[in-house]
Amino acid sequence: MEHIVSAKNLSKSYTKGLYALDNISLQVDEGKVLVVMGPSGSGKSTLIRTFNGLEAFDAGELNILGIRIDASHDERRIRQIRKRVGMVFQQFNLFPHLSILENIVLAPVQVQKRLQTEAEEHAMYLLAQMGIATHANKYPSQLSGGEQQRVAIARALALKPELLLFDEPTSALDPERVNEVLDVMRNLAKQGMTMIVVTHEVGFAKEVGDQVLFLDSGKVIETSTPNVFFSNARHERSRKFLNQIENK
């Protein structure tokens, strides 16, 4: 079976001699959840952003949903990928000038050319699933962080993606708001959504993750099941990192 995501020897450097991504290879299969961990500046965002072409890379090869891209950063293929892959950001990045409903409906109507009424029905269904249907006509600034992030997830889901990317989706939230977002993500995993999640939420990683990939200085230090990674990490650097996040 073909992998949903397959990366081969990905490398990228912003500044000469310093690698943000250093020869990274990985695979994610359908319905699996890959959790990406690593210290700040280790390249987690850079890595996950290459998967939908927000970031170009210098060498190596990517295969996303059967679409191959390489260092040439072919814009047409990247747009094909983006139409099938959703992304959720740390800072939500909702469109502040549009209502919640408009935020969700815009891409299905404009990009996928779906009917306005059908897209709105779908959006209301998604908002209900996220428990925020009553906010449909409000604007992003009127919502709490946790609610905004759930809107962002609904917006990504509105395109019926085959893969979801999350870059620290709960890092900008108040601690008491973290779970309302993680619950939504747990549900998505249960429904079989393929996901790549950059997060430091150990509980979530243990419960939902199929694999944990640990990055440091742009290199994959280890890829293990959550069981092994959290109780018996194979590498000294991984153990040091786990100590640090536990003591926080």
Binding site: N52, G53, L54, R79, R82, K83, V85, G86, M87, F89, Q91, N93, L94, F95, P96, H97, L106, A107, Q110, V111, Q112, R155, A156, L159
Partner: peptide, 26 residues
């Protein structure tokens, strides 16, 4: 903010469509 560009790009908008629908109004 850059985040707005990244948001419309990851939703599959073309640069020009995103510019007029998302960036210019803001």
């Amino acid at each position: 903010s850059r985040g707005q560009w990244e948001a419309f790009r990851s939703l599959g908008f073309s640069e020009i469509n995103g510019l007029f629908k998302i960036i210019i109004p803001q």
